[in-house]
Design a protein around this nucleic acid. Sequence first.
RNA 1: GGGCGACUAGCUCAGCUGGUUAGAGCGCUGCCCUGAUAAGGCAGAGGUCACUGGUUCGAGUCCAGUGUCGCCCA
Length: 1123
Amino acid sequence: MFRPVSSKPDLVAGEHEILALWRERRTFARLRAQNAGNPRWSFLDGPITANNPMGVHHAWGRAYKDLFQRFHAMLGQDQRYQNGFDCQGLWVEVNVERDLGFTNKRDIEDYGIAAFVSLCKQRVLTYAARQTEQSIRLGMWMDWNDPNELRRLRDLLAENPAQTVTTTSTDGQPVTDTAEMIVGRLGLPETGGSYFTFSNENNYLIWSFLAECHRRGWLYKGHDSMPWCARCGTGISQHEMTEGYADREDPGLTVKLPLLDRPGEALLVWTTTPWTLTSNVAAAVGPELRYVKVQQGDETFWLGRGTLKHALAGDFKVVEEHPGSELAGWRYSGPFDNLPAVQAAFAGAGLGGADYEHQVVLWDEVGEEEGTGIVHIAPGCGAEDFALGKSLGLPMIAPLDENGIVIPGFGPYSGRDVRDVMEPIVECLKHEHRFYRLETITHRYPHCWRCGTPLVFRLVDEWYISMGPVYDKPRESLTKAEVDASLRYQIMEVIGGIKWIPGFGYERELDWLLNMHDWMISKKRYWGLALPIYDCTACGTVTVVGGREDLASRAIEGWDQFEGHTPHRPYVDAVKIACSNCGAPVSRIRDVGNPWLDAGIVPFSTVHYRSDPEYWSRWFPADFVTESFPGQFRNWFYSLLAMSTVLRREAPFKTLFGYALVFGADGRQMHKSWGNAIEFDEAAERMGVDVMRWMFANARPEDNILFGWHAADEARRRLLVLWNVYSFFVTYARLAGWEPKRGIVAEIREVGSRPDAEAWPALDRWILSRVAGLAAEVKEDLAEYDGLDAARAIDRFVEELSTWYLRRSRDRMRPSADPIDREQAFATLHAALVALSRILAPILPFLSESIYQNLIVSVDPSLPDSVHLTRWPDEELSDLRDPGLESSMAVVTRVVDLVRTLRGQAGIKVRQPLARMWIALPDADLVERDELLALAADEVNVKSIELIGDESELVDRRVKPLLPRIGRKLGSAIPAVMSAAREGRFEILPDGSVTLGGVTLAPDEVEIQATPRPGTAVAHDEGLVVVIDTELTPELRAEGDARELQRAIQDARKDAGVELDDEVRIRVEAPAAIRAALAPFVAAVSAETRSTIEFGEAPAHAQPIDLDSGTIRVGLMPGTVGP
RNA sequence: GGGCGACUAGCUCAGCUGGUUAGAGCGCUGCCCUGAUAAGGCAGAGGUCACUGGUUCGAGUCCAGUGUCGCCCA
């Protein structure tokens, strides 16, 4: 017997029950065992940063990941189910620093790098455990570590990393090592579970990748002016730059630069970063721009003509005008020429070894929108300045150290923080009469993406992987040698073979690759990949170590300090190797690696590329990866592609599915302070994860999703429609004591073929055909990674199941219904619901399981005990499909809509029976016409339906030319043809062809439809015409009144809270005439409403009911039944 | 400045390779159905499909340009 089901489900409580059920029955492990050894589907998880609790934006992607994994499991495919955690990098450091109250790198060094790195590992374990719990709550099936075990390892690591620990792998095997090494082995074959990018294997495999890059000459030490966060003490890579733009107020300082060869005249330059004036080298003008000499008081200035209005303060007079090109080469007196650093940089840096002098240079990029049209150039302080300086061979002056302190050689500014030097600089300029004006301006300025500090630019040594040249010609015309020399073109080749969803992803990635600068992989920090680069200070030779064994064999000192540790700072720093060229002892550079290296290597490191190539080749390349598009073009997608191209020159995945961002309900990014943020846990426990998953599946992946409580309510209501059908079924099946006897399809076959069975009703065969079609359609959608189309198809089906199948079948399931027909209805609805639960399973794992448990597991122990252990049902159901029946049924539902419209217009309630209606069908006929029309007649309460043909006086014929078919052929004749068709000027020939508007159209080029003849009260739609007979006989009126009475009794029962199967006594107070008219129907009403109907004086609480023929009062007699 | 995407009803969004009358859900109004009922149906109100131009017999759909927004790059 089915469990009773509430009509108001507690979805959240149900989800927790299902989670417990899965745990108890080890359902996921059994699914894996069931599919083991089958054809594979390889999913590669993009690692989630284990640094904070998971948010609803993570839930979107994770819902997709789980959806497609579950779907492919239902296709019987073997999978790896490995989740990934991103572990290393600045984002973890920043949080640990915040917890400790640190403000800069010196705090970390004082605290101790080993202890700091250990805290970073501990934080990762904390949040990996947390995110694991949250993901399980979301219903995500992965080879999860026990969260408590992750926390235990964290505590053991904190206590003493060297202590010996035994842990249990996810498949139950003991693994023993030191706490530190156990943590370093997480995710490897011996421990199982999620991969952690801080694992030894991940780090060492990146070493071998870097060694390979070095072998090909693509790894180099660069000197660049780069965005730099003085607080974090680190460069910000190009990848990270754009995440940190924000509006900011800065000084806008205008400075006079006296011209050496034009006494009394000065250039006006403008800067928002006064500290860079110490490092001024040149002044740039636009060669095409016009420049003017202006007189202001007793001073004479040069500036761009287009800047006069905003750059000058006060009255002025224009004296001369020249194109910028004529200013080139003018020498001027720099703002801080007496600083030792400036003198040192200029000495011997000019042409032919002479000292360099400040001068005007030409630059196409100069504009007049802001400033003076003359740009202050400090190549050591800005990216564009650096590029210009490099191309012109200008000297470079770099004033800052890594903490943003001005280095020695800058006089009074040395030793001061860059943020504190503006005032003394302005003071000095005033004192030197070089100050013109200081304003405050607001502009977009880059900030550190982690800590929000405004960035500065400084010249630094960093390590890069070369992307290779950009050739100034089309890709098709590149030679093999040119491509071989350029990683970027190799990647472009590789991505051509990838399926990008949505398609524009390919264009974006190509654009990114074409514009990609060399990949900066170093970071001057503590927690991360230890870059295995050994840069010999004696001879300049660079050695890149390719792995732990390589390091061991080269080590000449410090190995004993490193032994037993994971390859992280500070222990790995102790090892020195002999320079491969000069033999001098060389230390590792202190930098750690860019975290995208960590995530990019996972197509290799997580599938045992080095230790088990056979295993690796079975899972590489992945069939599918999915992540949020914004950002990942330049991050994970890029690093995956770059690393795989270097190692294999092939794509690491076949299909990439991208989706957009989760925003708050107001369309803005979620922020706690804006009140539009929803935490994952809150969402899960308030709306339920299936509701969330339904919202996610119904979102267009390429558009941002607006996530809020209202949208969740809407999604929930859709699911409630399904729940209502399910709960109706269970309620009545229990009432009837009905149970399925053998399987799903077998059941309906058996019932349908019994000798005593009437023909299997068309309505039943229709819904079975629909669900079979749905199975096929959703399979096709999900195979194409189209969750949206799948969800829409399901939604349409649920709608039809509820508002047509169930609505039309309710009476059949009542206790009073014909037993054979009732059994057919139960078997059909049961089969449809079970099939639907299986189709829903990937999207709504909990709701579908809940339905399946009750409809199958509670009654048939021989079948799989979880919906997720069943196979996709399309093949099983395929021979139930009947397209002809489906299209005929679609006509019938349109008939019903039209009748409702007509009844509304005529003011005749559906409760009032009508004698007749007439229908003209658009096409020749319906399949199983009589049975289908009976459905319509019953639904709209009409006693008989007559079909009418062309000859009827009720309809005219109309011709609808089929434009897609004739458009091309007819061309400009179309307007005439269409207006002839509209106005009825046509002739239908005996063979079915039609002449109109001067042409003859073949029978298959037109559709001949019925249309109401003017003046008749009919409704029509696409050639379907419906007419109702509005004449009401006394008999019909009485019957309508009887239905009204039935309604009133049911209302009274409901008001009294009477149970469905309770018998009640009803007292009806009515005039004699009405009583007589109702008499023939009393028995039927009485049976239908389970009541004994007495006429007489109604109880005081009885409700008055307006009938067509007068008013009656209907009441439930007290004391009969009820709560 | 360059690339990609979006712009359709008050709100959230569908509209396939162009086909003549642009749809749904939510919200609003009226009516109806109803022992699934905090659901459902019918009808109504609500749209210059961002704008301009082009291609075409025909453009929400294709092309070009403009504007606004978002993301990316410089």
